[in-house]
Design a protein around this nucleic acid. Structure first.
Lengths: 118, 118
DNA sequence: TCTTGACCTAGAGTTGGCTCTAGATTATAT
DNA sequence: ATATAATCTAGAGCCAACTCTAGGTCAAGA
């Protein structure tokens, strides 16, 4: 599969695919006549990345996660650590946004009342 | 009040104060011997900015909001619009993060189980 | 007088995750 | 032979909201 097909298949941009490779998220793609030729395994790797990415991990954490993943089951705890750290971050982001939302609702209410008073 | 005192009082950095001024969020601060001298009104304006900022508005939206604010009660609806748009954004961010969190919990569960199996 | 510390400016750098640009190469269709 | 489309590279640009840098001014204290 060439890069354009992979991009379409995975719903990523071509630039993003090259970017992930440059960042070392995936190993260097084999090239034929200077053009990337993605193997099934490459695609599987990319799908896995998108999967952990959907847990909200940064590319940096994804890279760390993959490194541990390659090292096998001895690193399960390390991988769990990454996910739990991410959970903590997400929980506090949600809490913060919820508080902002409450405040915003309060403000909107005030404005609506003032509008009624006019 | 000089800039350092204001920064301490409002818990902002000096750079941020100058930045807000440069961005046109607040009017130009009066200078004495080339140094900013903040009036009580300047501080009140800044507090108001921080107040709407805590509703999660971008600086761009804050600026728009302030512009309407100055124009008086005729712009109440316009201001409400800004706040409601922000509410919509916040709600969908929370929802999205909640979904990511659910997925993350699911992943962590899987990993914990695998750990138990080992 | 000299040093310290707070302030000044314009403009560059930071962050993450892309996205775009310019110029080159290659394969395919006419 | 040539036009088109897809690919390649290195490196710049984008976004927001700051943050930092370099080099300069200024007033007060020892």
């Amino acid at each position: 599969m060439n890069i354009g097909e992979v991009a379409k298949e995975l719903n990523l941009s071509i630039d993003t695919l090259r970017y992930y490779e440059k960042m070392g998220l995936i190993k260097e793609i084999n090239k034929v006549n200077g053009k990337r030729e993605y193997s099934e395994e490459n695609i599987k790797d990319l799908r896995f990345i998108l999967c952990i990415k959907s847990a909200g991990l940064s590319l940096k954490d994804i890279k760390k996660f993959l490194k541990y993943y390659e090292q096998g089951d001895d690193t399960l705890d390390l991988r769990i650590n990454i996910l739990e750290k991410q959970r903590t971050i997400l929980e506090s982001e949600i809490k913060e946004k919820q508080e902002i939302l409450n405040y915003l609702n309060y403000k909107i209410d005030l404005y609506e009342k003032r509008k009624g008073d006019k």
